[in-house]
Design a binder for these strands. Structure first.
Lengths: 151, 151
DNA sequence: TGAAACATTGACGTTCGCGTTAACGTCTCT
DNA sequence: AGAGACGTTAACGCGAACGTCAATGTTTCA
């Protein structure tokens, strides 16, 4: 186990990472293969080591898949937008010229805005469905009350 | 065209039904095959005839698929619950005994409640995602403002 | 040191949700 | 009656998203 000098205990092998995220090892490898996950670090023998950030990312992917029903291709796009964000943070004090930085941020902003719009749209329609369901529930309740008062 | 004596114009062939719902003929047949749609009425030659209720149902299925990202199997469960509801309405003035009616209603109520919980759950998590996205957006905006005031 | 537990890379298999094609029957209109 | 539009079933095909071996290497612990 030759981790970096100051490495803490927080690296997980694929089995543990799978357990914590509720996915399978196969799925994690598959996501890596499909470019949703960047190749994680490895230990000397070649075993994958997932960082805390990696695990977070995996969980976000899972949420987008389960919650929003996005395809992996769609998720990949969103994630790439996220990468831009992280890159911006990393390059913050570098020698990149100002115009380029601003352009990056602007693009990230646009993508985020699109994502927000998409979510708002979905939530709106879900609210409609919720409404009809709630009304239906009330009807049942009044029906049941009428019924119980009438032997 | 030998429809029922009092039939109005409201029956659609599969092509029209597909156009109105934005699905394909193949998809409609597939849903029927999978039990999501009850076998519709047919005309003499064997052509499928979809009623207004059928079309409504198709649209609801589509919404659940697109909006909620449910699998067809999951949708089928929800739809079956819906059938219970329709059956209750149809049998309303029949000779079924009171206890049985009440039991049916109660079951329908429970299913509806479960669906509501499911939707609320999803909406809750989506709201969380929305929140982080909104915050991210604000950060971008403040960053861009700082940038533009600093040549 | 050796066995048990865990990992690696292939490669093939499976299920879902339809698309597509083939061969054929029906409806409608002139 | 005949042509063109529309429909029918049956069957094969396909991409997505993994599951499931199989053969092999690595870690760990007694």
């Amino acid at each position: 186990m030759t981790l970096e000098a100051g490495a803490t205990i927080s690296y997980l092998q694929i089995g543990e990472a799978a357990d914590r995220t509720g996915l399978t090892q196969r799925t994690l490898r598959y996501y890596e293969e499909k470019g949703l996950l960047k190749p994680p670090s490895r230990m000397d023998g070649g075993f994958r080591l997932y960082s805390g950030d990696d695990v977070e990312r995996i969980e976000r992917i899972k949420e987008m898949r389960d919650l929003l029903g996005f395809s992996l291709a769609e998720i990949k796009e969103m994630i790439e937008a996220d990468d831009v964000r992280l890159q911006v943070r990393a390059e913050w004090r570098s020698d990149a010229d100002a115009a380029e930085k601003a352009a990056r941020i602007l693009k990230a902003r646009e993508v985020t805005e699109a994502q927000l719009a998409l979510i708002d749209n979905k939530m709106g329609k879900m609210a409609e469905m919720r409404q009809t369901l709630a009304e239906r529930l009330e009807k049942y309740d009044t029906l049941l009350k009428q019924w119980s008062g009438q032997p």
